[in-house]
């Protein structure tokens, strides 16, 4: 069967400039550990600075980084509340994935970062917003964790689902952090 001209065009287009950089970056921010939220924020701000259309899709524990820092307990039922009691939400209260030592690890990491002029995750989150990074909370995770829109920081996009993320990711570099 003959291939139509239009089809050929769409097949050829991506190879036209062999070294053309991807102009879209989609980061699936799954983890709420300090040592993973940090690279989420570094890659997102760097992506936006590179001129890439950048989206951070926050799902599962990643959503806890979007909870307002002054919120201590979130959730609508006892199970959801228990989760937030055991794992304090808010980007300034994240635990390390390793060497947490009941909060001593994160305090030490933040101290080291300050000494080396590395921006904190909360500063970088604000930078990401300023640079126009799209921040999309996952609706399903919000429901599961009992997080309401007003529990989360300002500047977020509309909550969405997997299809929205995959749609964005079709012509993008994707990272799962």
């Amino acid at each position: 069967m003959a291939t139509s001209e239009a089809e050929v065009e769409t097949k050829v287009a991506p190879h036209e400039h062999d070294h053309a950089p991807h102009k879209k970056l989609v980061i699936i921010a799954w983890s709420g550990d300090l040592d993973k939220v940090w690279p989420q924020m570094i890659m997102a701000t760097a992506g936006a600075a590179m001129g890439m259309e950048t989206t951070l899709f926050f799902t599962f524990w990643g959503l806890f980084a979007l909870v307002k820092d002054e919120k201590r307990i979130t959730g609508e039922n006892w199970m959801q509340r228990m989760v937030s009691m055991m794992d304090r939400p808010g980007i300034d209260h994240l635990a390390l994935g390793k060497m947490n030592f009941a909060g001593a690890g994160p305090a030490m990491m933040k101290h080291l970062a300050k000494d080396h002029n590395i921006a904190s995750p909360s500063e970088m989150l604000q930078m990401a917003v300023d640079l126009g990074v799209k921040l999309v909370p996952c609706q399903m995770s919000m429901d599961m964790l009992g997080l309401k829109r007003e529990d989360l920081i300002d500047g977020l996009g509309e909550p969405a689902g997997a299809a929205t993320m995959l749609m964005e990711a079709q012509d993008a570099i994707t990272l799962f952090i």
Partner: peptide, 12 residues
């Protein structure tokens, strides 16, 4: 300033 701030500030 450290990575990625130099390029972020430059982009701004």
């Amino acid at each position: 300033l450290n990575c990625p701030l130099p390029i972020v500030k430059t982009a701004q």
